[in-house]
Write a protein that binds this DNA or RNA. Structure first.
Lengths: 187, 187
DNA sequence: CGTTTCGTTGAGTAGAATCAAGCCAAGTGG
DNA sequence: CCACTTGGCTTGATTCTACTCAACGAAACG
């Protein structure tokens, strides 16, 4: 989906990963959200799309049109409640990202992003994973945080040198000191 | 409402204005959203509140508890659909803010915020107002954009010197060159 | 009249962006 | 098999923006 398109379809993500982004006049991409399975994309109430939706990996979607939606809600009132719940979760996630992006230093932003990934990489909802693969490239991480890829790279090596994380290849992350990461995030 | 509270109530705003914010370990406030009349606050599906809600002006709210919500949805299925619509709008607004906060330069951020205010100050949904009162203090603007009050102040005087806007007192803004502002926002 | 709050302005500095190489792994083609 | 390319990542040197610290002006208030 591209910004400016007639907005005819919405979808829930079945497998894979998507990003929602906007692109400014100079071609700078801003990632506004990363969608995981069971997440929802599309603007149900806008005539044209505001943002771009791009697959990060091969993905499977369950598409439906807005007219589908309206008839389905009429037949199954519980559907609206379920979608409301999803939408509330997306909203909370967007605000979490806002919070992250507002951190003062680059180190705090990168540390916060790692903590967030550790949480979402865990199967349990209350614990964080202590090792995981970064779902985003350096370029995408930079775009999420509003930094450059060089700065992201430097912060990662900095975090490794200070012993808070260890890296396995370009994408593998092992958290060695989770509380320390959180301290950096909030400071 | 304060982050960490038991999350027992939600509300729609009738008159006034609210801000949703988070506060980090150093006491730095991040404004995550500004709520206007007809807007919704509260996290319907979280046991404890993640963020703070603070009134920007004297405000009137229509409060309801989460159990109220559940019985109301059971009796009036259309309610869920209406709340879904609101929630979608909040989500779009949060993403617009994300976009703004991700702009590279301070000038682009301030210019973008002014454009956004000009839009929401207009009574018509398709035109922007050409003069309006800033709804936020310098401190709140800085917090929304992730800047300091000094930087916001300097950017405003810069925009005035370059002829894009004129100021009337501390809060009054007159847009003299709206396309120019948009160019700055996307550049 | 002092005090407080809010906004503006200036000087100096820390930190991220920019510019520029260079490394490594994977792919391509002779 | 080897030269070459490509894309993603890292590192270094330099520049410049926005933060910090500090002073000052204006309006509101007791």
């Amino acid at each position: 989906m591209a910004a400016g398109d007639d907005n005819i379809a919405c979808a829930t993500l079945v497998t894979g990963a998507l990003k929602i982004s906007s692109i400014d006049a100079e071609g700078q991409e801003q990632i506004l959200s990363v969608i995981h399975p069971a997440g929802f994309v599309g603007e149900m109430f806008a005539p044209i799309a505001h943002h771009n939706v791009i697959a990060l990996t091969d993905s499977r979607l369950c598409l439906f049109t807005r007219s589908d939606y309206e008839s389905a809600v009429a037949r199954f009132p519980a559907l609206a409640a379920a979608l409301l719940r999803r939408s509330s979760e997306e909203l909370l996630e967007a605000r979490t990202l806002l919070d992250l992006k507002g951190r003062r230093s680059a180190k705090a932003k990168v540390a916060g992003l790692l903590s967030a990934f550790a949480k979402s990489a865990s199967t349990s909802s209350c614990h964080s994973a202590d090792s995981f693969m970064l779902p985003l490239s350096r370029s995408d991480m930079a775009s999420v945080l509003g930094l450059t890829i060089e700065t992201v790279s430097r912060q990662l090596t900095g975090l490794e040198k200070s012993g808070l994380i260890r890296r396995e290849g370009a994408r593998g992350i092992i958290i060695r000191n989770a509380p320390g990461l959180d301290d950096l995030t909030n400071g």
